[in-house]
Design a protein around this nucleic acid. Structure first.
Lengths: 233, 233
DNA sequence: TAATTTTATTTGTAGGACAAATATATAAAT
DNA sequence: ATTTATATATTTGTCCTACAAATAAAATTA
C-alpha cells in the first residue's frame, strides 16, 4: 500500500448530511415498525434530536415525500403512507440517461416477464376477460399485423388479466423503453414487413382453450425475433 | 355535479413548489436530451429562472441526487449521471409499509421472473457457469432440501448466468420480500417437511443437457407450491 | 513545461422570519 | 346534549441571509 503499484486509491465516500439523515430516518422507521397512518416526529424535533438544521431534515424528508413514504399536513404533522413501489423507477426511465446496456437489459426484462405470466393468466382468466381480449383483437385493423397502439392494448389487457397490479404497472412502465430500444437499435424495416407467425388471435385461442405450456410456446413464437439466439433451440 | 349524488368530490391536488420544480427539471432534462456528463445550470440560476427560493431548488435537486441522476461538485457545479433503475424501489422495500396486497404481488413477481428466464439461460450459459453452479449445489448440506442461504446462492447464480445485471439486481432485491411473505403468510411447516420434487441438481442437469421448455417445466415443479391453483393444470 | 500556490466559484449547512393551511379548542346555536 | 360556527395554535412550506467547505480554475514559481 506504499506505492502506486495497485492502481489509484479510491476516494473515501463522503456523504452529505442530507444523505445521512435520509438513511437514519429510513432505518428508524423500519426498526420501529412504522405502518401507514403512524405519526412521525415533526421537523423541529428531528432537527434537534439529530443536531442538524431544519433545512437538512427538510431535504431528506423531501426525498421520502417523493417516494410516497410520508405525507405532511399543517398542524397535524407527518404520517407514514404506503409508497408506490415504482415511483423512483418511473422518474429515471429516460432513455437519454440510462445507458445502452441498461436499455438493452430493460428490453430483455420485458421479454422475461412475457414468458413468465402463463400460470397466472390461466389461474385467473375469466369469461369476461376473454371476451374483452377478443374484442380488442377484433378492433385491430389487420388480424395479422398489429400497430403499436394495438400491441399496447392487447398486451396491456393480458397484464391486467394476471390480476397482479404490481406486475401490470411494472410492465407498462417498461413498454416505452422497449419501443425506444426497438426503434433506435434494431432494423425496423425487417420486422414491419414480416408477418408474425403467431398472431394475437392465436394467443387468445391458446389462452382460452390451451394449457400454460402451449400458451408459452405461442408467446415465444410471437416474440421470437426479439430473443437471443440459442444453440439448442 | 350540484349534489352529492355522484359520491364524495375529490379534493384538488395541490402540489408544493418542490414537487413542481422537480417535475420541471426532469422535463427540462428530457426535452433537452441531457446525457451523463452534461453540465446542469447551477442552483442560483435555476432559482432565478424559476422565480423560487434556492431552498426549493435544493429540495428538488436533493430528490434527483438520491435517484443518482445528478452529481454535484464545488465550483464546477452539477452534472448529469446515469441513474440506477432501482434505487427508489430499494428504499421503499420495507414490508411494514408496503401493504399486504403489494407484498403478495411482489411474491408473485419473483415467480413470474423465475419462469421467464429459460431462454436467456440457455443462450448465455458457459461451461464455467455450469461448473460453478454445480459447485454451489455440491456445497449444499443436503441434496434434497436447501437452506435459505443455499437457495439464495443457487438462484443468485442462475440470475447471474442470464447475463442481465438489471434482472439480477431486481430479483435479488425481491428475495427478502419473498422470504418475508413466505414466513408471515404461509404455513412454513408443510414446506420444510416436504421434499422438493425437483431438486437444484435436477434443474442443473436440465440446464446443462435439456431444452428451455424442459428447464421451465422443472422450474415450475420446483416452485409449484407457490403458484396459484389453476383449473387446467 | 511542470509543479505549487492562490483565488473564485458553487454547493452544503445553519439560522431566522413569516405565510399558509389546517387540526384542535372554544363559543354559540339548536 | 348535540351540532355548527369561530378562533387559536401548530406544523409545514417558502423565503432570506450568512458563511463554511471543497474544489476547479487561474496565477505564480521553479
Amino acid at each position: 500500500m506504499t506505492g502506486k503499484k495497485n492502481g489509484a486509491l479510491k476516494p473515501m465516500e463522503s456523504l452529505s448530511l442530507t444523505d445521512r439523515v435520509e438513511t437514519i430516518l429510513r432505518q428508524y422507521f423500519t426498526e420501529n415498525k412504522f405502518k401507514p397512518g403512524d405519526a412521525i416526529p415533526n421537523e423541529l424535533d428531528m432537527a434537534k434530536k439529530l443536531n442538524v438544521s431544519r433545512n437538512v431534515v427538510r431535504e431528506a424528508l423531501s426525498r421520502l415525500r417523493m417516494l410516497g413514504m410520508i405525507e405532511a399536513r399543517p398542524r397535524k404533522g407527518m404520517v407514514m403512507t404506503q409508497p408506490d413501489l415504482f415511483t423512483g423507477m418511473e422518474k429515471v426511465l429516460n432513455p437519454f440517461i440510462l445507458g445502452r446496456d441498461s436499455l438493452n437489459e430493460i428490453f430483455e426484462l420485458r421479454l422475461i416477464m412475457e414468458m413468465g405470466i402463463a400460470e397466472f393468466l390461466f389461474a385467473r382468466k375469466t369469461d369476461k376477460d376473454l371476451a374483452e381480449l377478443e374484442a380488442i383483437i377484433n378492433r385491430q385493423a389487420s388480424p395479422l399485423v398489429a400497430s403499436k397502439e394495438e400491441e399496447v392494448a392487447f398486451h396491456g389487457k393480458l397484464y391486467h388479466m394476471t390480476g397482479n397490479e404490481t406486475f401490470k404497472r411494472f410492465q407498462t412502465l417498461l413498454m416505452p423503453i422497449f419501443d425506444h430500444v426497438f426503434k433506435e437499435y434494431s432494423n425496423p424495416e425487417i420486422f414491419t414487413e414480416t408477418i408474425n407467425p403467431v398472431t394475437h388471435y392465436d394467443l387468445f385461442l391458446l389462452l382460452k382453450n390451451g394449457t400454460p405450456d402451449e400458451f408459452r410456446k405461442g408467446m415465444h413464437s410471437h416474440l421470437a425475433v426479439y430473443f437471443p439466439v440459442t444453440e439448442t433451440s
